[in-house]
Write a protein that binds this DNA or RNA. Structure first.
Lengths: 235, 235
DNA sequence: CGCCTGCTTGATGACAATCAAGTTTAGTGG
DNA sequence: CCACTAAACTTGATTGTCATCAAGCAGGCG
């Protein structure tokens, strides 16, 4: 199914807006003619777990979460994704997990078949895709350690430090301001906790002087070394 | 460093035994001249997390576990691996996790550089590697759901069903006998539990008639449908 | 201004970790 | 082959932690 049709059936309030294809910059976008820009509002579903992969979506702006759901509704968020990340992988038949927008999002979408064809003729692109997949693999192992063996405070510390990748502003004195576009519930479902526990750990960190909660979605890391110690990161 | 040297420094009681290179069959072994067969005894370490990847190891016989360790000793086993699985991935600099033998193991080892060169000229091999990586990725997401959102009994059920891949004997009446070469502690460290909890769940399943414990390392699945229901598998 | 949603804090209880003891299995040597 | 030892597994009792249930608070939008 074409992405417009798909989006229409998925989200009733989706408004298709094809914009002029972006050029230059970005991961896949250096290969023009095969892409379209789509725009989503917050809380819209881009793809469903288990659906046949027809298209790959490269995130241009905004934040996306991917997740899996058990049949009684329990949810695990497998990752948060931003600019340059790709939803859906070539060579595989079906989406591993569902993808839903958190903020307003623009994506650049490609026919899977065309990407695969390009990969065949262009070893550099193939290498990029492989590298991306391996990066994800490494991240997911790191996350498995969090979920399986870390305490809640350690998981949150790990999460916050990983969020530095998303950091917009670098504040003087090595403090980092990070943006958390996702809800507490999202963070909880990512860390295998409840939102209450996530809140409590945030409060704990605040009172311990490790962080400052400017707003619920804006946090300043005031003591990264201490957080790193807690996080027990391998890298 | 060459694998022999590495193995020597790693395990004091390692006995290097280069055998004639295997030919035909297997994943990578169709490309001869670049491989050597190595043999390990139970409990020996093949590679350390964080070490520079010089070699890739394809498992020929036996079972291997891969794991990550936190600085206070907590361990998470990221996977169990058997025939055809490859330890270490090309294009990446360092091993994600440590690999240790559970049973006696023979591996076929390849210089990473040579595999990469082959991948460049042989798109089929490249595709195979990518497919393998994607398969791992899918498995790891499934495992993340277990670790983050499933109850202990559900995790064990999931684990047992996944073990059917390793099943040696298919017993009449659709019962499956599975071999568990790993210890309870290994299973616990794989599922993010303690060995006591794993034991208790096994006992629970036994008394519920779901399984039979022939020996601690031999289990018959007597009611796979019920286990599947518990496991909440997506596939 | 007031409702609604998302966040925070508090009280309680369930469940799995921990601590501990006992049992089985496997391995070793007489 | 059997006795002995060590390791792995199992079961029990207790504790601590995090989920659950519940209520209050703050910010955003109509």
């Amino acid at each position: 199914m074409r992405p417009t049709a798909a989006a229409k059936t998925i989200a009733r309030d989706y408004y298709p807006s094809f914009i002029t294809p972006a050029k230059g910059a970005g991961n896949l976008r250096e290969y023009p003619k095969i892409n379209n820009i789509l725009r989503y509002r917050p809380g819209q579903i881009i793809v469903f777990e288990g659906d046949v992969i027809d298209y790959l979506y490269e995130i241009v702006t905004g934040t996306v979460k991917t997740y899996k759901i058990l049949n009684d509704g329990r949810r695990l968020i497998t990752g948060f994704h931003a600019m340059g990340d790709i939803i859906g992988l070539p060579t595989d038949g079906r989406y591993f997990h569902s993808a839903e927008t958190i903020t307003e999002v623009t994506v650049c979408c490609y026919r899977k078949g065309q990407i695969e064809k390009l990969m065949g003729s262009n070893p550099n692109l193939a290498k990029k895709i492989v590298k991306m997949a391996f990066g994800r693999l490494q991240d997911s192992y790191e996350q498995m350690v969090s979920l399986g063996r870390k305490r809640p405070d350690e998981r949150v510390a790990t999460f916050l430090l990983n969020c530095q990748k998303w950091a917009t502003v670098q504040i003087p004195s090595q403090n980092v301001m990070i943006n958390l576009p996702m809800s507490r519930l999202d963070i909880a479902d990512y860390l295998g906790l409840t939102q209450e526990t996530v809140c409590r750990v945030f409060s704990l960190f605040k009172h311990a002087g490790l962080i400052t909660l400017v707003r619920p979605d804006q946090i300043i890391l005031k003591n990264s070394p201490q957080l790193s110690k807690l996080a027990n990161l391998s890298e």
